[in-house]
Amino acid sequence: MTEPSIIFSFFIIFSGAAVLSTLALMFRQPMLIAYIGLGILVGPFSLDLIPNTKMLDDVSEIGIIFLLFLLGLDMQPSSLLHTLKKTTTVALISSTLFAGLGFSLALMFGFSFTESIITGLCMMFSSTIIGIKLLPTTVLHHKHTGELMVGILLLQDIIAIMVLVGIGGIEQGTSDWLSYFYLIVAFPLLIGISWIGVRFIILPLFMKFDRFQEYIFLCAIGWCLGLAELAEVFNLSYEVGAFIAGISLASSPISQFIAISLKPLRDFFLVLFFFTLGANYDVEFIQLIYWQAALLAIAVLVIKPIVFRLLLNKLSERNSLSWDVGFRLGQISEFSLVIVLIAGSSALISAKSASFIQTAAIITFAVSSYIVMMYFPNPIAVKEELRRD
């Protein structure tokens, strides 16, 4: 069978997504589920209309990069530091509790000790994409809820990077202490490079050619992807580099113009991300692990909001705000799927264990998105009174 062209692949993805999204909205379901469902339906493990998703995997990651870049654009450095100080305890305690939950349940379901550890690591994090995409822009930019969520998610992302570094070291057969040291050095180095680049190169160019909107747009994308690539060279991640690139421009008067310009581009690539998530899901093991995955997903969906509510209450946050943040962060993260991929390639977990984690993650994506869309303010709410862009 010949490989389908990129045009055919995009036709299947976006036309199919339009059809399934229409059905999803008619039945009051979140559109994210339509994208994942389409990937499962036409991917290599079902109808096989798009047998090779490797290229789409690489392209879809750009959506996450742009998401983190736009997130950084809305975070003033002083505000970010204040938020991180406040949320560090919440992020560390919650991540530890969620890791224990995942480890205990996986061990109880008969998975090996190593597979249970990987499961616990995957339970530590919440989805940056779902958390931020379902947060109204006005809340993200100006409200305390947005600041708390960004602080918790950013700290989780840093922990996730450390986990990925550790698993990468196991894959290479090293203890990888040097990689952790390198990580500690590389992070402030990247911040320093971004500050120098913006002050002496980017902002002077913006001021000189501010009448040319297309030039501003191109420079912003180049700066985002350039710092993302540099972060990858430093053994960090594309996402961390993009976030720092955004923060470095946040104080610029042109930051909001950049954010508005890049929003449609971000949405385009995020459709690809969720599609490839579904397309890479192997349905072969679902009969073997469906009930264990369902129980793990239920545990996450119930316990995560409660833990976040209790921890945020300890910070003297209101009950309503604590529940809001808790439910918005009440799912497994896309970082967990990356951990599964690396652990699988390192033979640390079996295909059955990988499917167990992936299934639980997809269930939490679906149910958590539905809960937020139906009961909390968000940009794609079916109820008019909850719709906030």
Rank of each mutant, 00 (worst) to 15 (best):
S316N: 07
L134G: 11
V185L: 15
A106L: 00
G63F: 10
S353R: 02
I64F: 11
E317G: 00
I244L: 14
F335I: 02
I129F: 12
I40V: 11
L205Y: 08
P44M: 07
F8G: 02
I158Q: 07
L288W: 07
D58E: 14
F11W: 04
I167A: 04
K304T: 09
A299P: 05
T114L: 11
I363Q: 00
A160Y: 00
S94Q: 11
L121S: 10
G16K: 15
F243M: 10
V139T: 12
E115D: 02
L329R: 07
Y281P: 01
R387W: 08
N280T: 10
P264R: 05
T174L: 14
Y290F: 14
L218Y: 13
V300R: 02
I201S: 04
A366K: 05
I193W: 11
V307H: 00
G43E: 11
V185C: 13
W195P: 02
G197K: 07
S21K: 12
P264C: 14
V163F: 10
S46Q: 15
Q358M: 15
E171P: 00
I13E: 04
D282C: 02
F27Q: 09
L225W: 08
L80D: 08
I357K: 00
A361C: 14
L262M: 11
E284L: 06
G344D: 08
I247Y: 15
L348D: 01
K263G: 04
F273G: 02
T2L: 10
S355T: 14
V340Y: 09
F111A: 07
Y375C: 09
K352W: 01
L310S: 03
S95T: 06
T138K: 10
F27N: 05
G192H: 10
G72Q: 03
F243E: 08
T2I: 13
G37K: 03
I298E: 06
K263M: 11
L311Q: 07
L203A: 08
L81D: 07
F335V: 07
